[in-house]
Design a protein around this nucleic acid. Structure first.
Length: 890
RNA sequence: GGGAGUAUAGCUCAGCUGGUUCAGAGCGCCUGCCUUACAAGCAGGAGGUCACUGGUUCGAACCCUGUUACUCCCACCA
């Protein structure tokens, strides 16, 4: 069988992914196995795969594939989020390209376009996930606005409304005057900007005195309804109970006193505009001030702006300053640097604006959600995020769930006019609402539905439940089987919006947690530690990376440097390591496939015995590392589990085991060793499979088909997958054998080192002698292995040092390699003297400890015993070194 | 302004309950090798005052005090 010397991921990856799909190996149905469920953090339906997704979904895939191989019924449910803001923006842009202005469309027309866009272009990201190998159950693909999820949201809204937890209230929102919508706090970008601080004169009513107030937004004085100073401010005590005249406006407003004011800032006097600043709004509420909204939705001044009506807010700022200047009402103007909120979407300066919104009460839900995390019913990995979580829940505010958009779950509230009063009806749909209107109010006229849609998180907080239809059919077999889910993998930036709220929803609607573990990934950054962003152009395209290094290579590269919760400075070079590893395994396969198998008579007794030892050792080693890997997975230390697997394959299997059993060129290998090697190799592929699904599937098939007829092989290829194999588990292993090998390995390294420094060809056989007598120097059954790997013709214990030999120490035992040529005495002496110096220093430190009475009396007996042993070892070693030096100096 | 976290080799990180020759790994770097699986490789090697300070302890990378630097989250000053 001809195998290329370089592994080519491209054809392999496509082939196997299609195979997995065809065989429905990702599909899950409830059965009598234990479930293992992960729900995907639904990416935006507008999204394209970026490095963050790559990391997040690789981790999920590793966990899911491993669970599957551990015999669990693994189910990873994919889907997308309707992403109101991003989608509306996309659709508006698409319409604009077609020459259609959104404002010319009705809501229904717009939504029709939006759905068309979604069907045609949405969800590209799910296709891209296949390239990376994601083993999602695609039959279950969901969308936060598909019929089941939509109805779930409606039911939840009605339910919470009926429980009295949802209410309508007035709140200040971040208004984008360009997009004509409210945006969430998260969509406001604060940018440093060079502004001016204007000092304006507010005259006292009917007096000739004035106070100076500093502001960055003089246009808002049109909406001023008070001036505020600190109650303990000495400078302003005389103002108590007085009124001032708003400059240029003429309105008389009260002086109020509140500790909110920072006496140090500006003049210590603050103008209050309740309609246009959140803090002013709060003060306004506290003191019952009038609230004057002076802006239109598009950021121009409304009729309250008097002569400035119709002007843009920034033009107005200039004009009003000019007018005030002329009227002598400006004290001074200073340069000032502050942070101004801009809309993430349009970059327009955000205008705080009062409006009616829907809210969900959080108090009780927050309490329960906090409790299950505090008592570790839900575990966070890493645990440090518990602090962040607690801090937020303890200071939580009611959740504003309405958004002024069209694309989303429209709020199921209808308004009717009954006897001149507006009544609100909340119902699942218009039909229901009509019924209620008729029954409750005897009303049969038109119903007016609320214009707003729900916050996107109001649908995704139900995700782990609604994916299994657990809201509409709370007792269906699926929700009972798959819920609660096992692990949730997410970036920490949505801990509040999503994680906390899913926990609330779980408790509220299922009376149960939604998942047992939360794994927080880091944020993918560039080499310089900057966040990946479109603006910087520092984000590599994951698809291109996978084409370059293979999906396995990129998966491995990402995981190697991504411990939970740590940001990961991504350097494309780490994908090389992954690619190289694929290639390494590939070449191990080439080696093994090239072996000829022979009848036993052709095999020498020695190599037969060596091979037996090698196989035994590799089995012990595997069991030992498996224990480590299992432990790492228990602790969610994926990068360490991967590193342990990597070293097991590369170092133990390739560098040591294969070298041990590798037959000399042109000679065959015995059947037993060959079969054992294939078995070990196959199991190693299973261990690696969760990390590197493609290359392992490919190699596993080749290995499985060894010795099979074409027909049999075809059957295997068509019906079997590594995905369905059992993950090897750790078993009891012989630690002594592993220790013996470590000693043997040191001997081999010692000899190789001598070859290296002395420039001795690997082909020239050497001899090794070691000082007899130390029972801790034990190479067990590895003598033959040493001979083979270090090309040593003879190993023997001696009582005296040989003349003209190079030496090295293993523990307290001296080893010698006799030299036919003269040795460099100077160099050898220096080496020995350095070693002696270190040993003497070490002994001194040990003696210091042992001569300390407090240590001998205070420390546990075992620790003292260890120190004594160190002492005697060091003394032995020093004596040996001194003897060697003396011998050389002769 | 409030809160949290981090600081160990050139880089990215382990180091679990304070105690084994405990100062580790991978990558990178250096030296020598195209040795019939692999140069995407093989063999060997060098690299660290565990940020700084003081303390607790027989004993500290690890626990405590303080300092410095960086990161993140929350709230934001008119």
């Amino acid at each position: 069988m001809e195998i290329a010397s370089k592994y080519d991921p491209r054809s392999v990856e496509e082939k196997w992914y299609q195979f997995w799909l065809d065989k429905k190996l990702f599909h899950s149905e409830p059965d009598n196995r234990a479930p293992y469920t992960i729900v995907i953090p639904p990416p935006n339906v507008t999204g394209v795969l970026h490095m963050g997704h790559m990391l997040n979904n690789t981790i999920q895939d590793v966990l899911v594939r491993r669970a599957r191989m551990l015999g669990k019924n693994a189910c990873w449910v994919p889907g997308t989020d309707h992403a109101p803001i991003a989608t509306e923006a996309k659709v508006v842009k698409m319409l604009a390209e077609k020459g259609i202005d959104k404002r010319s469309l009705s809501r229904e027309e717009f939504l029709k376009h939006a759905w068309e866009w979604k069907e045609q272009y949405g969800g590209i990201i799910l296709k891209q996930l296949r390239k990376l190998g994601a083993s999602c159950d695609w039959d279950r693909t969901a969308f936060t606005m598909d019929p089941i999820r939509y109805e779930s949201v409606m039911r939840v809204f009605v339910d919470l409304y009926n429980k009295g937890l949802i209410y309508r209230g007035v709140r200040m929102v971040n208004w984008d005057p360009q997009a004509l919508t409210a945006v969430s706090d998260e969509e406001v970008i604060y940018k440093e900007s060079h502004s001016k601080l204007f000092y304006l004169r507010y005259f006292i009513e009917n007096e000739d005195k004035y106070i100076v107030v500093a502001t960055t937004r003089p246009e808002t004085i049109l909406g001023d309804t008070a001036v505020c100073v600190h109650p303990e401010d000495e400078r302003y005590q005389w103002l108590k109970g007085k009124k001032v005249v708003v400059p240029g406006v003429g309105r008389v407003v009260p002086i109020i006193m509140d500790e909110y004011v920072d006496r140090e800032f500006g003049t210590g006097a603050l103008k209050i505009t309740p309609a246009h600043d959140i803090n002013d709004y709060n003060l306004g509420m506290k003191y019952g001030l009038e609230s004057i909204d002076i802006f239109n939705d598009n950021g121009t001044l409304n009729e309250k702006g008097g002569k400035y009506a119709g002007m843009d807010r920034f033009a107005c700022r200039k004009q009003i300053m000019k007018d005030l200047e002329e009227a002598g009402l400006v004290e001074k103007t200073e340069d000032y640097t502050n942070k101004v909120g801009h809309s993430e979407r349009t970059d327009a300066v955000i205008e705080p604006k009062l409006s009616a919104q829907w809210f969900l009460k959080m108090d009780d839900m927050a309490k329960r959600a906090l409790e299950v995390v505090e008592n570790d019913t839900i575990k966070f990995h890493p645990a440090k995020f518990k602090n962040t979580y607690r801090h937020w829940l303890e200071n939580i505010k009611d959740w504003c769930i309405s958004r002024q958009l069209w694309w989303g779950h429209r709020i199921p509230a209808w308004y009717i006019d009954v006897n001149g009063k507006v009544e609100t009806i909340v119902a699942l749909n218009e039909e229901e609402a009509k019924k209620i209107a008729a029954e409750k109010y005897n009303y049969t006229g038109e119903l007016r539905q609320d214009e707003d849609v729900l916050d996107t998180w109001f649908s995704s907080w139900l995700w782990p439940i609604s994916l299994f239809d657990g809201i509409r059919n709370p007792d269906n077999p699926e929700i009972k089987y798959y819920y609660p889910t096992a692990d949730l993998i997410t970036a920490p930036d949505i801990i509040f919006f999503w994680i906390a709220r899913m926990i609330m929803a779980g408790e509220e609607f299922r009376d149960e947690i939604p998942f047992h573990n939360v794994y927080f990934t880091g944020i993918v950054r560039d080499k310089l530690g900057r966040k990946m962003s479109k603006q910087l152009g520092n984000s590599p395209d994951p698809i291109e990376l996978m084409e370059k290094y293979g999906a396995d290579g990129v998966r491995m590269g990402m995981l190697l440097t991504a411990p939970a919760g740590n940001d990961l400075p991504f350097d494309e070079a780490i994908c090389e390591q992954g690619r190289n590893f694929s290639n390494k395994i590939w070449n191990a396969l080439r080696l093994v496939m090239g072996w000829q198998i022979s009848s036993e008579s052709e095999i020498s007794v020695e190599s037969g015995k060596n091979n037996e030892v090698a196989v035994q050792w590799m089995e012990q080693r595997m069991a030992c590392v498996l224990e480590e890997i299992e432990h790492d997975f228990d602790e969610y230390r994926l990068s360490e589990a991967l590193m342990a697997s990597y070293k097991l394959v590369w170092d133990d299997f390739c560098s040591w085991y294969l070298e041990m059993v590798k037959p000399a060129y042109g000679t065959p290998i015995d059947r037993e060793t060959y079969d054992a090697t294939i078995s070990i190799f196959s199991r190693l592929m299973c261990i690696l499979h969760p990390f590197m699904p493609f290359v392992t599937e490919e190699i596993w098939h080749v290995l499985t088909n060894i010795g099979k007829s074409d027909e049999q092989a075809e059957f295997v290829n068509a019906n079997y997958s590594i995905m369905n194999q059992h993950m090897p588990r750790s078993v009891f292993f012989d630690q002594r054998m592993l220790d013996d090998f470590d000693t043997a390995r040191e001997v081999i390294a010692g000899v190789r080192n001598i070859r290296n420094t002395r420039n001795i060809s690997p082909k020239e056989a050497l001899e090794v002698r070691y000082m007899a007598g130390d029972r801790r120097f034990n190479i067990g059954s590895f003598e033959g292995i040493i001979r083979k790997l270090a090309n040593v013709s003879k190993i023997e214990a001696v009582n005296e040092k040989a003349e003209g030999a190079l030496s090295f120490m293993i523990g307290t035992t001296e080893c010698f390699v006799p030299m036919s040529q003269n040795i460099d005495v100077e160099a050898e002496l220096k080496k020995l003297q350095d070693e002696l110096k270190y040993a003497e220093g070490f002994l001194a430190a040990v003696m210091k400890k042992l001569s300390n009475e407090k240590f001998v009396n205070g420390a546990p007996a075992q620790v003292v015993e260890t120190e004594r042993k160190k002492q005697s070892d060091a003394e032995t070693k020093i004596a040996a070194l001194k003897a060697q030096i003396a011998a050389l100096q002769k």
